[in-house]
């Protein structure tokens, strides 16, 4: 996905991808977010994810590390943070230049479900979506989109990624034990 340069709204390191998704919705961002996982060892090839927004609602997603788009890109990005995130604002015409790619499209609430695990944020995002956006099965307050099972299984089949998540957590636990004064 080639994205035009725009106006940088913010650039920061966040512990979880929820914050930038909520910020994009709050400010009705038209533009895109670039997610760069800090722990690149978790990724097959390193890289970053891009999610585009129109009026705060996600439209398309792409992950450079695996060259996959749409829900698969979200699955590739779905891992513990921290992430370095840039939010970039574009005008409508500039966003239109990116084009409409069916293979990159994501339903409005899916990034909040899959990246942030936040059904409430997903529900708010769906409410903000225009009526002509492809409808998705609304999740209830408790759970993910019902179409998630395949993505979850794909995640569980990626032994290297899970091993990396565990290694990262162990390193973090050890580091914090020192910070917190645990023996």
């Amino acid at each position: 996905m080639n994205v035009p340069e725009g106006r940088l709204v913010h650039s920061r390191v966040v512990a979880e991808p929820r914050d930038p998704l909520a910020a994009a919705l709050d400010r009705s961002l038209t533009g895109y977010a670039v997610f760069e996982p800090q722990e690149t060892l978790l990724l097959d090839a390193g890289g970053h994810g891009i999610v585009t927004f129109r009026d705060g609602v996600p439209e398309q997603a792409y992950y450079t590390g695996t060259d996959r788009g749409g829900p698969s890109a979200l699955a590739d990005l779905g891992m513990p943070g921290p992430y370095h995130v840039e939010l970039v604002a574009l005008d409508d015409a500039a966003l239109d230049q990116i084009g409409d790619h069916a293979e990159l499209a994501v339903p409005p609430g899916m990034p909040a479900e899959r990246l942030a695990g936040d059904p409430a944020l997903a529900a708010s995002t769906r409410r903000a979506a225009p009526a002509d956006r492809e409808t998705e099965t609304p999740a209830d307050d408790d759970g993910p989109d019902r179409s998630d099972a395949g993505a979850v299984e794909a995640f569980l089949d990626d032994e290297a990624k899970i091993d990396a998540i565990k290694q990262q957590a162990r390193a973090e636990a050890k580091r914090r034990a020192e910070e917190w004064g645990f023996d």
């Binding site: 695990g117 759970g143 998630d148 995640f155 973090e172 034990a177």
Partner: peptide, 21 residues
């Protein structure tokens, strides 16, 4: 946990913290 990717990855972290301690 719930059967979602974020919940699973957090559950893995809980396990690794627990066993580390």
């Amino acid at each position: 946990l719930q059967p979602t990717i974020p919940a699973l990855s957090d559950a893995l972290k809980v396990q690794e913290y627990a066993t580390s301690y």
